[in-house]
Simulated assay, not measured.
Amino acid sequence: MTLAKYISNLLYRYECVIVPNFGGFVTNEISAKVNHFTHTFYAPSKQLTFNSHLQNNDGLLANYVATSENISYSKAVQYIHKEVDSWKSILNSDELDIENIGTFHLNNDGNYIFEPLNTINYLTSSFGLNSYVSPAVKRIVYKEKVKQLETIAPILPTKENKKRTPAFIKYAASAAIIFALGAFGWKEYQKVEYNNLVVEAEQQQKKVEKSIQEATFVISNPLPAITLNVTKQTFNYHIIAGAFRAPENAEKKLLQLQSKGYNAKILGVNKWNLTQVAYESFNSRNEAINKLNTIKKTDSKDAWLLVKEY
């Protein structure tokens, strides 16, 4: 699997995926919208942008690559650096096309210009919702028809028709009746159309909900299943204080951190047979990064962030 595939998979579940020494792909959720010129309706989606200033390795991409490829964290970092060097080499002379994400090129100042691919919606709650075109509503102007009836044929006064009701009054009365019936019929037509649209919308919503419930994602490499509407907190982000070969040293470190007021815990033994001790664990990546920066300033510069998928 290429690095682009790893980034694309992570964008379904995270708001930001940083590629070390290159930049960060950031998603922002946008609501449903309609194009009034083409009468096209678009489902809610994630808008993909690129920030070239986000280059520091936060561990998310590297840990995912290491888990998927069953390699060490350091080898995963080397793999990412090699891929980034290849991207930069292409950009020096040509346009860079990253699969399922978008294209890059350099401007005259040497800055990255990113054009996202709009055919993929990374918002999982909109799965199965495609854009559609609705014909514009045409409204009939009845006043114009009334004017036409009034000018069809002028009636010349004669002895015979003087005694009868003037023709223009008959035409005006007929036009008034037609207009009243037309207005009433139009309102009834609008009510029927509106009720039909409501029923159709409810049926479409039921189909979408059923599709979401029955949908499965098949990924060749190991990837945690995407679960919708999950409220359980998983605490995937851990600020690591140290990893110890001897379990008793890990216990000492745990008691030391707890005495300082941290909600410390032992995460268990990693693949290198080292017992990891964490200052604290978080469900939010932003909270974890903010706490990590505080710990680096006040307690230990050796603390680092572990992103662990369950």
Results as ranks from 00 to 15, higher is better:
A62W: 01
F37M: 06
N35A: 03
K210W: 03
S220C: 02
N130H: 10
L257R: 04
I295D: 01
H36K: 11
N121R: 08
I212G: 01
A264E: 02
T119Q: 11
K308Q: 14
A76F: 04
K232P: 00
R13G: 13
Q47V: 05
D97C: 10
Q148W: 05
F114P: 14
H81C: 05
K88D: 14
K260R: 08
A167H: 03
E251G: 04
N293Q: 12
V269A: 03
N107W: 06
K291R: 15
T49S: 14
L181W: 05
Y79N: 05
E248G: 01
E251S: 11
I18K: 03
K271M: 07
V269Q: 10
E280N: 08
N9E: 14
S220N: 15
A176Q: 08
A183M: 13
S72R: 07
V198N: 04
T40D: 10
V269C: 04
T49Y: 05
Y132F: 15
A153S: 12
S31D: 11
N293E: 12
E144R: 13
L223G: 02
W272V: 07
F244C: 06
S74N: 11
S284D: 10
N118L: 14
K207V: 11
F50D: 04
V192S: 13
L305S: 00
K296P: 03
E309D: 11
Y262F: 15
A183D: 10
L48Q: 05
G24M: 02
N273P: 00
G185V: 03
R285W: 01
L305C: 02
N35G: 04
L91S: 12
E115S: 13
F50Q: 06
K138H: 06
I7G: 03
F25E: 02
E95S: 10
G23E: 09
I169N: 11
N92V: 03
S93G: 15
P135Y: 09
F127C: 05
I140H: 08
A167Q: 05
A246C: 03
I295P: 02
Q78P: 00
L117G: 01
I155L: 06
L156P: 13
S220W: 01
L181G: 04
K301F: 02
C16Y: 01
N70M: 09
I266Q: 12
N9W: 01
S126N: 06
G242D: 06
I295Y: 01
N195R: 08
K206N: 09
T298L: 06
E193L: 10
D302I: 00
T227A: 05
T234W: 00
I177A: 09
A201L: 06
F179D: 12
I98W: 06
N111D: 15
A264M: 06
E214I: 08
Q256P: 01
S220H: 09
E248N: 13
Q203K: 15
Y6I: 07
S284H: 01
E309H: 12
T27S: 10
I80Y: 04
Q190P: 00
T2A: 06
H238R: 06
A303T: 02
H105K: 14
E83R: 13
I219H: 09
S220L: 09
K162C: 12
I239P: 11
S52N: 10
V208R: 12
V133H: 05
A176F: 08
K138C: 02
Y79P: 01
